[in-house]
């Protein structure tokens, strides 16, 4: 006889309330996590979406990529020595549309690479968020430091840096705008063990992200919010399951008195916990993933199925711990105590 489901069937409302709490709290955690990841992507998707590899910048730049200038001959040497290596530059700037309206963007240019857009002279490829600003393919845009005009050739999905839309432009155009001849960075893919290169300092993607102004502080705050929520929610689940089972000590004592094995009581508690938690989490995952699909274009929201599954596993483990602590209490229950307590 499956006591766990018999109890759920009889006390539907009680279990429905418990399930609803787990559903709502986990949904809140997933949504906040999605917003935090979304903001993180909004701040650095240009770098985060690159394949694993190393970024090199000038040692004298002291971790400020905008101050980095890699010597042309050294750059050529690196591009020849390392397969798929790319030299690139990133710089904040502005674009004016045909109505004269100013848009803040991040100009990115690179040598030929499959990781960055290849753009011809006078062309520009923009992040899709610029569409919402009324910019369309074929529009012409200008920059006060650029003598010519940029023609919009296309848009790319979610490519942002420092919360601004990325604008891929040709190297020669970039050099004209910023009056520079050297590139700021060299990216070497799949090179996880940093190579010693005289005059350059290597950064992993994670290390480089920390050099972006405000990225670290923002991420620390967001991660703090998410993990605080995870821990609070997890504790809440554990306490709920603990309380729910500890309230039944009298009943469990009677069942032990008539000869029911303690292991069957444990199985009953764990079955209920797993059933309620997985059902609520499954619903929560489905709704949060649905929300992921329908979020407005401009809202920074990014919730991968891997993230929701990882958080769900954390919740399940914490709920399991809460139930197990209660079951340890129940193991100690003397049947006699329960009998003497009176009617259950």
């Amino acid at each position: 006889m499956n006591l766990a489901f018999k109890e759920i069937k009889k006390n539907k409302v009680r279990f429905l309330i418990l399930g609803s709490i787990i559903f709502l709290v986990s949904l809140l955690t997933f949504i906040i996590s999605g917003l935090a990841n979304g903001l993180s992507q909004d701040n650095a998707s240009l770098i985060k979406d690159l394949p694993e590899g190393q970024l090199y910048m000038n040692e004298d730049a002291e971790e400020a990529y905008t101050l980095s200038k890699i010597n042309s001959s050294l750059q050529e040497e690196l591009l020849t020595d390392y397969k798929d290596a790319t030299a690139l530059s990133i710089q904040m700037g502005i674009l004016n549309d045909h109505k004269g309206k100013q848009q803040s963007v991040v100009f990115v240019t690179s040598t030929e690479s499959k990781n960055f857009k290849d753009v011809k002279d006078g062309e520009i490829i923009l992040d899709q968020s610029m569409k919402e600003k009324g910019i369309e393919i074929g529009d012409t845009l200008t920059n006060p430091q650029f003598s010519g005009e940029f023609t919009v050739k296309g848009f790319v999905d979610q490519t942002k840096f420092s919360h601004a839309a990325v604008a891929f432009i040709n190297i020669e155009n970039y050099k004209e705008i910023y009056r520079v001849n050297e590139m700021q960075l060299v990216f070497v893919p799949k090179d996880n063990s940093p190579q010693e290169i005289s005059g350059l300092r290597s950064f992993s993607k994670q290390e480089f992200l920390k050099t972006i102004p405000s990225y670290n502080a923002e991420q620390m705050t967001l991660n703090m919010i998410v993990w605080f929520l995870v821990v609070t929610s997890g504790m809440l689940f554990a306490i709920f399951f603990y309380m729910m089972n500890v309230q039944k000590i009298g009943l469990f004592g009677i069942l032990k008195a008539i000869g029911l094995k303690t292991s069957r009581l444990f199985t009953m508690m764990w079955t209920q916990m797993i059933f309620i938690t997985t059902t609520s989490l499954a619903l929560s995952i489905a709704i949060s993933q649905g929300f992921n699909l329908i979020t407005p274009e401009g809202m920074p929201f990014n919730l991968s199925i891997e993230t929701t599954l990882s958080l769900s596993v954390v919740f399940l483990v914490i709920a399991f711990i809460g139930t197990t602590i209660a079951s340890l209490q129940i193991r100690k229950v003397e049947p006699l105590q329960a009998i003497q307590q009176g009617e259950i």
Binding site: K6, K9, I254, L255, A257, I258, G259, I339, G342, I344
Partner: peptide, 15 residues
């Protein structure tokens, strides 16, 4: 081998 009747019935409330 044993059967029990207590002062209160102590039935399982959800069965």
């Amino acid at each position: 081998d044993f059967g029990f009747i207590f002062q209160f019935a102590h039935l399982v409330p959800f069965l």
